[in-house]
Design a protein around this nucleic acid. Structure first.
Lengths: 353, 353
DNA sequence: CACCCCCATGTAAACGATTACATAAACTTT
DNA sequence: AAAGTTTATGTAATCGTTTACATGGGGGTG
């Protein structure tokens, strides 16, 4: 105290009245604020002695740089927005973890934008990127936002680096991280066919969804490869949720001529479907085989354990985050990545009797 | 162009070279920046004419306030941090939605801090709150952070409003939003006892967890109320995950003298447990009843459908967010809230034969 | 009519960093 | 030893708002 002189807003007694600023550190270390800033941003550009004094002063004052000031000046937020269609969907949580991990290691924070099917929210998150609250964004929702519906000149805003994850965005010139949905669906369909099934139903996702469209193509590819004619009556509408699986099950139960196998384009639907079948006395896989897609945690402990397509969710998240970080740091980023899936054979699919 | 004079950084041709600043709006509307700022923050304090001109200018320029500058000056970020132990856990996703919804409506963004069991990350998120990157935080992890492990004077930082959700933080003087875990566990235990079960096992959560401790007390309360002696050998260690349910199942299968009912303190464990029992030929509920806790989406479609305790997850999230917003906006906030749970009876529990 | 008060607005000082530019010292190179 | 180069540091402008304070005009009141 007797040394600091008139440091009127510095610490007093014990606890700082106010958070320390770079000025306080500079004064204590007897250097300029520029040197403190440099000591933090690029230590090698500061002499060892000064650096030591600076770090000592930082420790003593408990200084933490003010992010707002930093952002204002440097135009960097060290924040990334992750936009996804449905936060309550199990499928995304592991992906989010993969993203978060990787961002975290690189010093970035993650802001979540849960669209929840509302276009109003979409506009909101679009504004987020436009206003410079984040340095970049990872889009899991299958399309770019920001293109105003009214088409007015409402400004195409400051554009920031974007990465598409899982749902490819056709025509967008950004890195796209995904799996080969078509190929995976083909593989599963062929797998079912190879076990003797020929009446293979397809429980779909929402028709406008990109994943759905790819998987549907794969289903058709698979039928074709197996020499099975496509039967539109075996395509059941769904939307990836447990509930739509339950509904689809009721549809099947009511049919006179049932398929012998059902390929569901999400595990959630498969689990909901099996539930309805079992309640109606239809045994899985004895009476009907059921296959899923995603390999969520519950797939392995479903009853019966679900045969499905494994997606490397954590790795997908990590890859997307890495690609974005590359972009943010001016490094060249891979245009597109396709991660491998795996056909996981469990108990819900059996050879045709 | 011929009107603006030397507006060298204003729009040119069609698209703005640079995002519009408050200055640009002020110039166009022929008012000062202060008026623009006021027109946005408190429209009633600006004359209708000026207001109209300002809004017109905002529309014309596509102006969006710079959040960093705003934060720097006003010390408000309009961001909230949500700290949770495990983002990949299904239980949290609906809660997050409730939180996000409510924050969104109030104009706040949500930053997720997934601890993932790492103390290193905890320190990181603590720094988040300390550095003023967020206005407040919702803690789902059951304890406050910021109290340095080394006990050094490392500064108790700027403290921001906090709310505890789900896991109460003993001794913390902040709003706590939770359910009555003890009461709910008691109710389930009594329910099992009322069906004739007296050998009721308890599949626990992690021993240090607050929820676990409360539920365990409730289990004991329930036994006592039913006049059943507590048997430590019926307490099986778990950690809320599917995997620990599977492991617990193996333990039970190996036992000579099995319980007739198992109360699992999470649905995930219950589902994992049932899986193992069924694989080993132990029927649920005929040979053993299984009860869960949480009522996650999969509980209703498990095979058999799971009898469990329903937690109003969305409402929990909403309540926590509301409490935090009250705090942030200087309104009095309820000290603590306990939301009601519900005993959901499905098929996994049956009377003792 | 003089006084006071209120209202709408403007002026300019923060907020707390980063960084372009300037400067001085130390080291190379010829 | 002079000139040029590199290195370490400091000075001060800048990022784009919000807001305390100042100002001037209009309307009430005594």
């Amino acid at each position: 105290m007797d040394e600091a002189g008139q440091a009127d807003r510095a610490e007093q007694g014990d606890r700082p009245l106010r958070v320390a600023r770079i000025q306080d550190v500079a004064k204590l270390a007897e250097v300029s604020t520029a040197t403190v800033s440099r000591a933090l941003a690029s230590p090698e550009r500061v002499s060892p002695e000064a650096r030591a004094r600076v770090f000592e002063a930082i420790a003593k004052t408990g200084y933490v740089p003010n992010p707002a000031a930093r952002t204002l000046r440097s135009q960097k937020t060290y924040m990334v927005l992750v936009v996804l269609p449905d936060l309550a969907n199990t499928f995304f949580s592991r992906i989010l973890r993969g993203i978060e991990e990787t961002l975290f290691e690189a010093g970035y924070g993650m802001i979540i934008g849960d669209l929840d099917g509302s276009p109003e929210k979409e506009a909101h998150f679009s504004a987020f990127t436009g206003a410079g609250r984040v340095d970049g964004a990872i889009l899991l929702n299958g399309h770019l936002f920001g293109q105003r519906r009214d088409g007015s000149g409402q400004a195409a805003r400051l554009s920031i680096p974007l990465v598409a994850l899982c749902e490819a965005i056709p025509g967008a010139d950004i890195p796209q991280i995904e799996i080969d949905n078509r190929e995976a669906a083909r593989r599963m369909t062929e797998h079912l066919a190879s076990l003797g099934h020929s009446r293979i139903a397809y429980l779909s996702g929402p028709p406008e969804n990109v994943l759905e469209r790819e998987r549907f193509k794969g289903y058709q590819d698979g039928l074709e490869a197996a020499g099975i004619a496509f039967d539109p009556s075996l395509v059941i509408p769904g939307d990836f949720t447990i509930g739509s699986g339950v509904t689809a099950g009721q549809d099947l139960v009511a049919r006179a001529k049932r398929p012998t196998a059902v390929f569901c384009t999400s595990d959630e639907m498969a689990i909901g479907l099996m539930r309805t079948l079992l309640s109606a006395g239809i045994r899985v896989p004895e009476d009907m085989s059921v296959a899923g897609f995603d390999d969520i945690e519950f797939a392995a402990v479903a009853e019966p354990a679900l045969t499905t397509i494994h997606q490397p969710r954590r790795e997908l998240g990590q890859a997307a985050a890495s690609a974005l970080i590359d972009l943010l740091q001016g490094r060249p980023s891979p245009r597109s990545i396709r991660l491998d899936t795996e056909l996981v054979i469990r108990d819900s699919v059996a050879p045709l009797r």
